[in-house]
Amino acid sequence: MLHRMILNETFWFGSGAVSQLVSEITQRNFKKALLVTDKVLVQAGVIEKVTALLDKHQLAWQLFDEVMPNPTISLVQRGVGAFKAAQADYLIAIGGGSPQDTAKAIGIIINNPEFEDVRSLEGVAATRNPCVPIIAIPTTAGTAAEVTINYVITDEEKRRKFVCVDPHAIPKVSLIDADMMKSMPPALKAATGIDALTHAIEGYTTRGAWELSDALHLKAIQIISRSLRASVAGDAKGVEDMALGQYIAGMGFSNVGLGLVHGMAHPLGAFYNVPHGVANAIILPHVMAWNAPFTGEKYRDIARAMGVPRVCPMTLDEARAAAVEAVRKLGADVGIPLRLRDVGMKEEDIPALAQAAFDDVCTGGNPREASLEEITALYRQIY
């Protein structure tokens, strides 16, 4: 069987990695950047760490700070207009998954204008040209959008999220700098951290998994489970370890796919603007428990990677239950809400949510095939 791996051309990791920005720009002879980010990061002064470097070295840039959580079609189209108006030749995406995804969509459309409607990018679009070069600078330790070929856009008119899978969209350069993540509030660290754990667990159990991706995902589970509590508590080493763990998870799942947790989380963002990490975090242990009989020995590996003691002598059912409980305990320890009603989900919307989840591209990778009725029942269980 053939397997494909696509990763960044270059990535820098570690405290102070942003200092490599100037050399990466100049050696590629880039002329002017459009900075894609959000107003919260601008107001918090996070963006200044980047713009100060650009200004010091007289590198031209223009700001596009209209990004909101769960980026929409209209946002992407405004970003395309901003890129053209700025006469930029590359993008710097600063932020969590939303700025990264927005930059990917902008970059793809600039070099593939036949997809300017945005909707036609859904799934595996037949783009012909690599996107405008992107330098990705994440400010959250969770989405790994800086290393993935995926991006997610919200269609407000149809109240749905759609996933785009395109090797042409991967950033050229990623700068994974824990110093850019220190200002994250604890709740955001928790949600994005469990999002990263979801990537690792779903990537490990997805139908497309293989030995190389398994190695990445198990290591990511190990790093995330030992570091997330410390990161949420404000420990600098915990933040840096989470930055690494989420990136390793992204290296894996970008190349093999995910599962039903993501399939069920995406509609919650489209319907209620629930942050993606929060939605994943609530759903993860429930879908894990439902998937358990279809995962072979993999939950034993997950339990071991999460530090559960004396896993080897356990029966398979005990090991599976231990893995699910370890995930539940980690979520509880970092303050994840327990139920979907706690984040605004409406019971009367469950049939529509279930249909959207059933149709989601991520759902097809789930180790257990899910019917519309079973997804509906899961939503009711988690409500």
Rank of each mutant, 00 (worst) to 15 (best):
L228F: 05
T102P: 05
D235C: 00
E114F: 03
E156K: 13
Q381V: 00
D179A: 03
W290P: 02
F162Y: 14
L378D: 10
A136P: 08
I92K: 12
R320M: 15
T295S: 14
F294D: 12
Y247T: 13
R159W: 04
V80P: 09
V274Q: 08
A86D: 07
A352N: 07
L41T: 04
L228I: 02
A236D: 05
F271E: 02
Q20Y: 14
V42H: 00
C362M: 10
V147R: 08
R341K: 12
P285C: 04
K104H: 04
P309Q: 01
T198D: 07
T143M: 06
V343L: 13
V67I: 07
A126E: 12
F253I: 09
P71M: 07
I25L: 13
A356T: 12
P69I: 01
L35D: 00
I106W: 07
T192G: 02
A265I: 06
V311H: 08
A352V: 00
S225E: 08
G307W: 10
M288P: 06
E122D: 02
S120V: 03
L59M: 06
E347I: 00
S74G: 06
I149S: 10
V18E: 13
N70A: 04
G296H: 07
F358P: 01
C312M: 15
C131N: 14
E374M: 12
M251K: 09
R78M: 01
G203H: 09
T148R: 05
P309I: 00
A196R: 05
P113A: 14
Q381R: 13
I221N: 04
V165A: 10
A265M: 06
